[in-house]
């Protein structure tokens, strides 16, 4: 499943790979769509962890997201990372790019919001 807006894309393969790409500095209302999308992703991951009678891993690829405003950062933190933290046995890896300043400065702080989170820079 995926959603697209002006200049950005969000894609989930239904198994454990979520990716955002492009530039995203949308109006606050636009982020409601993305919040709903994240909710569906986490529902699928919750079911997945139950099916496997163990843990599940979500890989969130942000390497091609070249710009994100503060409303977007809040959306990812509140509606994805912090919600994921409430799901038992869910592990998350966020793939980031060393060449994108906003990622280098902001994404390491996400580890304060979720215990089972690993930030990987490439």
């Amino acid at each position: 499943m995926n959603i697209e807006g002006k200049g950005y894309k969000v894609n989930f393969d239904g198994k454990g790979k979520l990716a955002m790409s492009g530039k995203l500095a949308a109006m606050p209302e636009e982020y409601e769509k993305i919040e709903d999308f994240f909710e569906k992703v986490l529902d699928i991951m919750t079911e997945s962890s139950k099916d496997k009678t163990g843990s599940a891993e979500l890989i969130f690829d942000l390497r091609d997201l070249t710009f994100l405003n503060s409303s977007g950062i809040k959306t990812i933190c509140v509606s994805l990372v912090m919600e994921a933290d409430d799901i038992e046995d869910l592990y998350m890896k966020i793939l980031c790019s060393n060449s994108l300043t906003w990622q280098v400065e902001t994404l390491p702080t996400f580890t304060d919001l979720m215990d089972n989170l690993e930030i990987i820079f490439e």
Binding site: P28, N69, S70, S71, I73, K74, C77, V78, S79, M82, T101, E105, T106, T109, D112, L113
Partner: peptide
């Protein structure tokens, strides 16, 4: 940043929206 995100999550549960993250983001740079 962490405190503001916690407050934003609590506000979302109440159907409200708050963060003031823009200023924090500028300072973080």
């Amino acid at each position: 940043f962490k405190q503001k995100m916690k407050a934003a999550k609590a506000a979302k549960k109440q159907g409200e929206s708050t963060s003031q993250l823009g200023f924090i983001r500028i300072i973080m740079q």
